[in-house]
Design a protein around this nucleic acid. Structure first.
Lengths: 211, 211
DNA sequence: TTCCTTGTTGTAAGTTTTTACAATAAGGAA
DNA sequence: TTCCTTATTGTAAAAACTTACAACAAGGAA
């Protein structure tokens, strides 16, 4: 009676995959409803599993939140740092800088839904000492690498600039526009990000060959 | 026996004053612990009243949050709009612009604790349709006024600029630095705000006589 | 096929937080 | 002073949420 073979009531997943799925589901919840939507039951539903599975994978809400931070911000920023610090990277420093800027203002990355996640995490980072320390170390590292590359471009062009300050202001400008976009989707187009960020950089470094 | 006159167990306040006090207490909670600290009992304690008083003044948590939004952001931005739109304001347009910029980067205003409140409210605005609509109307209005003043300065100086874009980028730059400061208090000094904002404006409008 | 490991479920207990309300008393009015 | 209005309290019911756990079953191993 093969046709009577009952369908399994649930699917057993490899722990690593399930864990990653749960984190992704949590991120989706954050992007839809901010911290208010970061509820165990909702996350389980979003992942298509029962509530009872969560404590099996995460000791508590806080551990899940840390994992979300790691998956959403940490890995992302670290990828940029990796690219920034890649000494064997192809192209001139200016070309590498353009690649990084393009990555930072990637349209897919600047989705308002994505900023909803950032806002929620920032709101937590500011208030959670553990996350705050981790984030500071990460972010300083990132800005340092960005500043180093900017300094390299300036050096090649025989320009004297405050690379640290330019890097910080560039990131601030982009974050600020990102925020405006999240609060008012139609307020900022992707082209605005390009004009603002490249415009700002070129004021200090001269023409960059943006793609 | 006058000396035996028992001390009152509580003080009766005028409803308007008590209401305002409660909202201020809520803001203080937000600034200390973000949305996680936006709890009825904690707010009552912060205001020095009993938990039971809150439902007497606010139909629910959401109503209190709206009041907080009004008190913390709405009034604040409206004050700036009022100053921006004041046709009888003293001084040249450039001087007025400097006054506004100084107000935006007021050290007292840029306290990290204050940004904690903004972060919490932004996180809510993004997710709460009612707040979002209110905030958009308010903010567009603000940027429009700021752009108008910038346009006026440019006109006087016979410069052709995209005032709307400059206004938006200026605010984005400041917001972004504000955010960095909140996440890492020592990362951005007040002088950095001055240099960044005036530097940015002067690139487009020429020298401004910052105080 | 049968067995065994462990991922998964359902439920319920425990905890925190919000909301409701009857009783109390502050403070002005008469 | 006495009375009256209503701001305020204390408590408890209700709701929302997290955590714990015993029982079940998927799916690979033998």
């Amino acid at each position: 009676m093969q046709s009577r073979k009952k369908a399994p009531r649930f699917r057993r997943e490899a722990p690593e995959k399930r864990r990653a799925d749960l984190v992704q589901a949590a991120i989706r919840c954050l992007s839809e409803g901010g911290m208010a939507a970061f509820k165990m039951e909702r996350i389980a539903a979003e992942a298509g599993v029962s509530l009872g599975l969560l404590p099996h994978y995460f000791k508590g809400k806080n551990e899940l939140l840390s994992e979300v931070y790691r998956a959403a911000l940490y890995d992302d920023v670290n990828r940029k740092i990796g690219e920034l610090d890649d000494k064997d990277a192809a192209g001139t420093p200016a070309a590498r800088l353009c690649r990084i800027v393009d990555a930072i203002i990637d349209p897919d990355y600047l989705r308002p839904a994505n900023l909803t996640v950032w806002l929620a995490l920032w709101g937590e980072i500011v208030v959670n000492p553990e996350l705050r320390l981790a984030h500071r170390a990460l972010y300083r590292n990132y800005l340092k690498s960005l500043a180093a590359l900017i300094g390299l471009v300036a050096e090649q062009r025989r320009r004297t600039v405050n690379a640290t300050e330019i890097a910080r202001s560039l990131q601030a400008l982009i974050d600020g526009l990102f925020l405006e976009r999240a609060l008012d989707r139609r307020a900022v187009e992707h082209a605005d990000f390009r004009r603002a960020s490249y415009g700002f950089l070129e004021l200090h470094l001269g023409k960059l060959n943006a793609a």
